[in-house]
């Protein structure tokens, strides 16, 4: 996948993992692929993946079982928080861009409802 080379790649990978957690592609307690495998998948230097793993572990999002690999935390509450923050991130970004076009709150809601097939 194509990364934005203007921002640290490891942060972007963490974002991807957050998104996967939000969408359910990654679940609590799930084993992450090996550093090597992720490096191949994302087409980045394995050291970048190492850095990602270190960050994730530091944040408490993952833990390592000696000789078995790296796993997503079992802390369901943390996962929930991550999901929320991912969604909120998108929502905030959207609202900001709509505001930049000078739409009012009502107009924003209207457009969204229309898009989702609801009644204005």
């Amino acid at each position: 996948m194509k990364f934005d080379n203007n921002r640290p790649i490891y942060l972007q990978i963490i974002s991807e993992i957050h998104k996967d957690l939000a969408s359910g592609r990654l679940v609590t307690g799930q084993k992450l692929p090996s550093v090597r495998q992720l490096a191949i998948d994302y087409k980045v230097n394995p050291n970048t993946i190492q850095r990602t793993f270190r960050e994730l572990e530091g944040m408490g999002m993952t833990f390592t079982k000696r000789g078995m690999g790296t796993f997503i935390t079992e802390d369901a509450e943390m996962i929930e928080e991550i999901k929320i923050s991912v969604v909120e991130g998108y929502v905030n970004a959207y609202i900001e861009s709509m505001k930049a076009l000078n739409l009012s709150n009502e107009e924003i809601v209207e457009i969204v409802q229309k898009r989702l097939g609801g009644v204005a």
Binding site: N5, N6, R7, I9, R51
Partner: peptide, 14 residues
Amino acid sequence: AEVIRSEKGISIDD
């Protein structure tokens, strides 16, 4: 490389 990206917000190319 990652420090350049995080501290300067630019790619290595730039």
